[in-house]
Amino acid sequence: QVALSRTQVCGILREELFQGDAFHQSDTHIFIIMGASGDLAKKKIYPTIWWLFRDGLLPENTFIVGYARSRLTVADIRKQSEPFFKATPEEKLKLEDFFARNSYVAGQYDDAASYQRLNSHMNALHLGSQANRLFYLALPPTVYEAVTKNIHESCMSQIGWNRIIVEKPFGRDLQSSDRLSNHISSLFREDQIYRIDHYLGKEMVQNLMVLRFANRIFGPIWNRDNIACVILTFKEPFGTEGRGGYFDEFGIIRDVMQNHLLQMLCLVAMEKPASTNSDDVRDEKVKVLKCISEVQANNVVLGQYVGNPDGEGEATKGYLDDPTVPRGSTTATFAAVVLYVENERWDGVPFILRCGKALNERKAEVRLQFHDVAGDIFHQQCKRNELVIRVQPNEAVYTKMMTKKPGMFFNPEESELDLTYGNRYKNVKLPDAYERLILDVFCGSQMHFVRSDELREAWRIFTPLLHQIELEKPKPIPYIYGSRGPTEADELMKRVGFQYEGTYKWVNPHKL
């Protein structure tokens, strides 16, 4: 086992960053958080920038500027975001240094004079007029057009580079997404736009490419001749908990499936790229999406959770019991969808996408189930092999396979070949997804960000279904809070070829 401390991990990262040409360590950078008073800024962006600063992973002359409508001070920003920093008493001095680099400007999102004030403020910072500028839009999409237009007109660096990070949702359907994309691309070049999907920053999602293309053993079996089906799962054990009003506007397909799960599907299904260059990788992902037809209604199961009468606390409440959810809402909190990649490698292999709230566990994984062994000599005792990439929690890679049961006879039983990170790298604290992705933006690497043509294809696949749901308002199937979801989803999976045995229990190697 390799035991690495946080300091050692960050030392390795620093070495990698400083050796590259793309990370300008000594240049002045300004990180501007648009929507600095909001939840995302408070819980994710400010803490992430602090962790990067604490670990010495930001360029040395980096300033952080918050911008929002609320009249706040840096002290206010500190008060609301610091509880999420997880700072230790030993880091007190470092924390003071961090907040000394912070400033805040209040202004409207659609007022040109406010942006001119913001620009004057940035120019007044040390070497601010020639600094590289990175704008993070932690804002609702309704203000994107006004904000990007004003940034472009008043706040661009004339000497350094300018980059803009856009948070999902990128529209509600193909038409609104196209409108937003066309607007942003009329102001910024594609190499300046970073559409963030934080799932692409997760260690195991990034590991998929290495697993596939750096190991000879997987190449020959990664196709329709050997793989019976692919299941991509995202499960949350909690409901909307008072935030249903926002969720109800989008629903589970827009929230998770059309982005996170579809991105994971691309990494499983794509061909080997010409290189690890950002556009070479994204070219292959677009090719996969172009091979997927629009979702067919007979390959869809929609569910909505109801309270568990035997549960406790939140578990007793259904989705419609959330006071922020519109009365009688038919918005799905669970969806199972089957897609097919219609190309030579994957023809006929079902890709089953499942996601839901208020389920029995927290889990995100990719599961490849292989065909049955031909010419069975073990009297149907063999179960199908599976390769599982567990994204969260407890990152893991393992192969479910058959071995001989101890004893006199040739009785096979299920076991696993474990390729888990935790076994080799004991207690290594890896940077989280937002840390990686923000560092990628500083480096100018777009590999783990969504390109406009990729986004367009993703919406093309799901828009007809979303429009049909909005028009017909089908009643989702009720499922109990804390269950596996509607049984109809299991029946759909069985119908397209997935075999669920229920006889195997994964042993978490992190707890051995």
Rank of each mutant, 00 (worst) to 15 (best):
D255W: 14
V256G: 10
Q258Y: 13
N259P: 12
N259C: 11
L261W: 02
L262Y: 00
Q263N: 15
M264G: 06
L265T: 08
C266N: 04
L267D: 12
V268Y: 01
A269M: 01
A269F: 00
M270I: 07
K272F: 05
K272A: 09
A274E: 14
N277G: 14
N277R: 05
N277F: 11
S278A: 05
D279Y: 08
D280V: 08
D280Q: 07
D280S: 09
R282F: 01
R282P: 03
E284K: 13
E284G: 06
K285F: 12
V286T: 13
V286F: 15
K287L: 04
K287Y: 03
K287P: 01
V288F: 05
C291F: 12
C291P: 02
C291E: 07
I292N: 01
S293Y: 05
V295T: 05
A297D: 12
V300K: 05
V300P: 02
G303K: 00
G303D: 01
V306Q: 10
P309W: 05
D310G: 12
G311P: 08
G311A: 07
G313H: 05
G313T: 14
E314A: 12
E314K: 09
E314V: 05
T316P: 14
T316L: 05
K317C: 10
G318V: 00
D321E: 10
P323G: 12
P323Y: 07
T324L: 15
T331D: 03
A332I: 02
T333W: 01
T333C: 02
A335Y: 01
V337H: 02
L339S: 03
L339A: 07
E342P: 04
N343I: 02
E344T: 12
E344I: 05
E344R: 11
R345T: 14
W346S: 02
D347R: 13
D347V: 06
D347P: 01
G348N: 06
G348A: 05
P350A: 01
P350M: 00
F351G: 01
I352C: 03
L353N: 01
L353M: 09
C355A: 08
G356R: 00
R362E: 14
K363Y: 06
A364V: 06
E365Q: 05
E365F: 02
V366L: 12
L368G: 01
L368Q: 00
Q369P: 00
Q369F: 06
F370N: 02
F370Q: 04
D372I: 03
F378L: 09
Q380C: 09
Q381G: 06
Q381T: 04
E386F: 01
L387C: 08
V388E: 04
R390M: 13
Q392T: 05
P393I: 00
E395H: 11
A396C: 14
Y398I: 14
K400E: 06
K400D: 05
M401Q: 06
M402Y: 15
T403A: 10
P406Y: 15
G407R: 04
M408P: 04
M408H: 09
N411G: 07
N411D: 09
E414M: 14
S415N: 15
E416P: 12
E416A: 11
E416L: 12
D418P: 14
L419Y: 06
Y421D: 15
Y421V: 14
G422V: 08
R424K: 15
R424W: 12
Y425W: 14
V428M: 13
V428G: 12
D432T: 13
R436E: 15
L437A: 15
I438A: 01
I438M: 10
L439C: 06
V441C: 03
V441H: 00
G444W: 00
G444P: 00
Q446T: 05
Q446N: 03
M447H: 15
H448C: 13
F449I: 04
V450T: 15
R451W: 02
R460H: 11
T463A: 13
L466H: 15
I469Q: 09
L471R: 09
L471C: 04
L471E: 12
K473L: 08
P474R: 11
K475D: 07
P476T: 10
P476I: 06
P478H: 11
P478M: 09
P478D: 08
P478E: 07
Y479Q: 02
I480G: 09
R484L: 09
G485Q: 05
G485V: 00
P486W: 01
T487L: 13
E488K: 13
E488S: 04
D490T: 13
L492T: 03
L492S: 01
M493N: 05
M493Y: 14
K494P: 06
R495D: 10
V496E: 12
Y500T: 14
E501S: 11
G502K: 12
G502F: 09
T503P: 08
Y504V: 12
Y504M: 13
Y504K: 13
W506R: 14
N508S: 13
N508W: 03
K511T: 11
K511Y: 12
